[in-house]
Design a binder for these strands. Structure first.
Lengths: 163, 163
DNA sequence: TCCGGGCTTGAGATCGCGTCTCATTTGACC
DNA sequence: GGTCAAATGAGACGCGATCTCAAGCCCGGA
């Protein structure tokens, strides 16, 4: 965590920006959770802990800092359609991955497959396109919901893990 | 086109809904263009042609109809992050495809690759996930922009085709 | 230590997409 | 023609996200 803060600080300094207490708090907050959080959830988080009392970070600052973090590659936005706000996840220490979104329970699962990357890259290059990044979301039913559907509605099913 | 209208009509009737002039006009409008249009662009389109004068379709109706069209699989929404509204494209007569979005000129190109689908499906299934649909957007530089960058800024580059 | 410029911040206004409300109109069936 | 539910239009509304701007804070220079 400390190294990440240092990297963020360096990133900011390079751009002639400052590593303020607010930015530090927001960075720590998003690296403290392993779920996908929206800007507002993050805002709420920052106000639940003691951090709020002394800092009272505003919504605008949360959004501004998230934009900076995204620019520096410290977090990544994740769009699931426009019914809900954008979700963010921290990236450092996590390989690139794609997302499976369960339409039943809303869980967001991560997965990755190197072949997928390779095929993608090649398919795109055939069109003379130079890929810089991509976003793959698969929508469907997660294992847990599929199972509980088989059992004709027994336990679980409405979890909200990681999302 | 006529068959598509009939299919949409049948789709509506099945749901106990009506195939009105407004819905017909919106269907025709989105099938008349081969670009990806936003709800508001569609609204503007409907007001530029003669259709507007006699029908004067409201924004609400455009959104409502697009939702119906999407539900019936006649159009498909395409999310490119939340900086812009959702874009729609008609689907009948078009195979499934993914999108390459040029970050320089904004062009949206379509591509598809059966291997990609296969690998995707398999990768997801490994996790016990049952895929229902997916959305793959690749961001980068299109052939045209890459070329004009090589030529150190000669012609073109700012096209807005199909998006 | 004091000073000044400029980056940051907070609070609220504002924007923009999309949805909702509701009175009115329209379509379909009798 | 009559009836009733679906559909529409105009505008209000909700909400995520951004913008505005005065006040605050950081940091380097004197």
């Amino acid at each position: 965590m400390k190294q990440i803060a240092e990297r963020f600080e360096k990133f900011l300094r390079t751009k002639g920006l400052r590593f303020t207490r607010q930015r530090s708090a927001i960075l720590r907050a998003i690296y403290a959770t392993h779920r996908h959080v929206s800007a507002d959830q993050l805002y709420a988080l920052l106000h639940k802990d003691g951090k709020a009392t002394e800092l009272n970070i505003s919504r605008a600052t949360v959004y501004r800092t998230l934009a900076l973090l995204a620019e520096g590659g410290f977090v990544q936005a994740l769009d699931l359609g426009r019914d809900s706000g954008a979700l963010y996840e921290h990236t450092l220490g996590h390989e690139h991955h794609d997302h499976m979104i369960c339409l039943e329970c809303g869980r967001i699962l991560e997965f990755s497959d190197s072949r997928l990357e390779a095929v993608q890259e090649e398919a795109v290059r055939k069109h003379g396109f130079l890929a810089r990044s991509h976003r793959l979301n698969v929508f469907g039913t997660c294992d847990r919901c599929a199972r509980s559907a088989d059992e004709a509605g027994s336990a679980g099913g409405a979890a909200t893990e990681s999302g």
